[in-house]
Amino acid sequence: MRQLTKTLLTTLTGVACAAATVLTVPAAATAATPRAYDGPGPRSDSLPMTVPSQGGQVGAPARPTRILSLSASATQMLYVIGAGKQVVGVDRYSTWPPGAPRTKFTGGETDAEGYLRLHPDLVVMAYASGTVLKQLQLLHVPTLVLPPAADLAQIYQQMDELGAATGHAASARQAVATLRSYVAGEVRYAAGAGRGRSYFLELSPSYYTATSHTFVGAEMAAFGLRDVADPAGHGNAYPQVSAEFLLGANPTYVLLADTVCCAVTPASFAHRPGFAALTAVRDHRVTGVNDSLASQWGPHTVEQFTTLVAHLLRP
């Protein structure tokens, strides 16, 4: 029996190793696909990713005319940089601008065939399963993946990227400059009121939060605010903390970005056991915001959010 076990294990391990080798080959091939498009400015390796069309030459036609945006943030960017007329469809979460051609797509589809009904010549997405990306590649549909930005610079970079991909490079640069100065203006308005103060951003009642290594954290950091969740991150940008952690950290401000999903209000927050003792509760510095402010990084949302923060700091 021992002999048998040994043989069995050897076989299993051997097969597992062989399988790992076999299964990794296409992976390596994918990774080696040349990047078709290199946007302006410095870029991190993870951002953004284009899938080349025929021949692996150029990501998109010089000026795509049928753009499908499956990311609310990208939709905002497209309209802000003047590519709105080229957009033929946006996902169901793209709430701004109101007139955008909304579809039933969620962007979380596991199959790309449905997208073809709109005959897109550029698909922009924030998340994509490997399958959908490869399907679009096989169907020769150029695709741009713009994942959640980790800071403001990545937001600007994604706008530039979209500008280059849609034939609006110049107006994209213009829009970036406008957004930069808008944010700077709001920071000036707050007049340093955020410096030395701390905040907690609640993404769900189970205390999921965002650290300053996210776009929303970066927007807060622009005001000099300190994120109490940073020490809890351990490399995770969206960690889960606890009520006790929050009581110990005792932030100056609390932002509730779970008012839509989970119907949390400043009043219900204050009623959680022990939370009456929080400085933010006592000083009425608990604010409920629309969930989308913490989940979208388009220029429209960034303007809304920075304005809100500026007025929180200097009412």
């Binding site: 390596a28 990774a31 490997g130």
Partner: peptide, 12 residues
């Protein structure tokens, strides 16, 4: 760039 490509091998 390819968080998905290793998945089948790792799962197996």
């Amino acid at each position: 760039s390819s968080p998905f490509s290793l998945l089948p091998a790792a799962a197996f």
